[in-house]
């Protein structure tokens, strides 16, 4: 883990308003995402963050930390 589980949870929670507001803001530029599209988009970003967080820091599996948490 690159960051603690608690911190990961915080990052994901803080992401929610960004996704929700991003969808709102985009519509003013004529891009209307449906609920499903927004969910998929949000889910993809969350997945990317989770992957980044659990990936061993330098690509070396042995270097993986047990994590401070």
């Amino acid at each position: 883990m690159r960051i603690s589980k608690g911190a990961l949870l915080v990052v994901i929670a803080v992401l929610v308003p960004f996704v929700v507001e991003f969808r709102t803001a985009l519509s003013w530029f004529g891009i209307e995402l449906s609920v499903l599209e927004s969910l998929v988009l949000g889910g993809a970003v969350v997945l990317a963050i989770v992957l980044w967080a659990v990936w061993p820091p330098n690509g070396n599996a042995e270097a993986e930390l047990s994590g401070p948490n």
Partner: peptide
């Protein structure tokens, strides 16, 4: 402490949904 952390995050997320829809 874990429950407490989850709690503050959940309030934040819940309010995001409710407040955004109210504004819109």
């Amino acid at each position: 402490r874990q429950l407490a952390l989850g709690q503050v995050l959940l309030w934040f997320v819940g309010m995001t949904f409710m407040s955004n829809a109210m504004h819109r």
